[in-house]
Design a protein around this nucleic acid. Sequence first.
DNA 1: TAGACGTGGTA
DNA 2: TTACCAAGTCT
Length: 350
Amino acid sequence: MRDTAYSGLSAVLLDWYDRHARSLPWRVPPGSGARPDPYRVWLSEVMLQQTTVAAVKGYYERFTSFWPDVGALAAAEDADVMAAWAGLGYYARARNLLKCARAVAARGAFPDTYEGLLELPGIGPYTAAAIAAIAFGRPATVMDGNVERVMARLHDERAALPGVKPVLYAHAERLTPVERPGDYAQAVMDLGATICTPRSPACGICPWREPCAARLAGTAAELPKKAPKVKKPVRTGVAYVVRRTDGALLLETRPETGLLGGMLGWPGTEWGVDPEAAPPVDAAWRRLEGEARHTFTHFHLRLAIEVAEVPEGLSPDRGRFVPAEVFDPGALPTVMRKVWRLADGTLRHL
DNA sequence: TAGACGTGGTA
DNA sequence: TTACCAAGTCT
């Protein structure tokens, strides 16, 4: 049931959105009545999972340029898609993106319901609701980090995440309007991204400043409460950069699952407390002075780098030689680019 | 269900 | 430098 107070709140936010909506490449201007292309909504929503708008823009433009519709993406080579995703992170998204594109191409079109969308790989509760609302006009309740924060503040919910999440969802569900649910979903997320920000929220210009319980209580900036984070451990490893005399470089495609799954990288040791050496070829290895430092979601990595030059005709234990003219550092995940940046400087002087 | 899973920007 | 944070999903 939606009572009139909640309907009024949604209307206030939609009115604000009509005047302040950000212009984004995947977005249709508010109130135009036009429905955006489900393919583009899906692609942008997957890219935006745990990822900032600024980071996504360039990737979105390249993907839609290379693969303008879901059929084109479904027909793409896996390696091309992984290379195009390189640097954006959370690479399971790219693997699932391809699975999803192929499933959609096989069935002819995207499902137009929350339940149908939820069945697809890489589409969870948030993304299913976002596509259902934005692309298909369904009154699905969208709950992401922005909505959690806005709901926690609007209702001054002081219990910590993730425990309080069902309460926040109930608030969000009551606010979801039947009219313009897609614009409303984007409006709450814009509010969270531009005004109701994690630190120093701009309560003075917020369209919901009057009904906001946290603003009244003075608790807005400290909500939502979260469980304390655990300190990240440090892991170490060695990356081996092999250059053949003809300039080819030894690279390997990582296993499909796990960290950087399916991505191209330098052969190396395990990443752990004290990993065992694992050079991919017999060679005169030179250890570089510097190390590549990189922080993943759950650990810090310090990667020592060893380089070697080897003659042609050698067959490595693992990986394959990529010709110099084909090698593209842009196809590597960021940590592997960092290794290359350091190794390249040394190899030039070898 | 809690942990795995990237990266770049900001304070 | 360190820690936190951003339009989550999968197992």
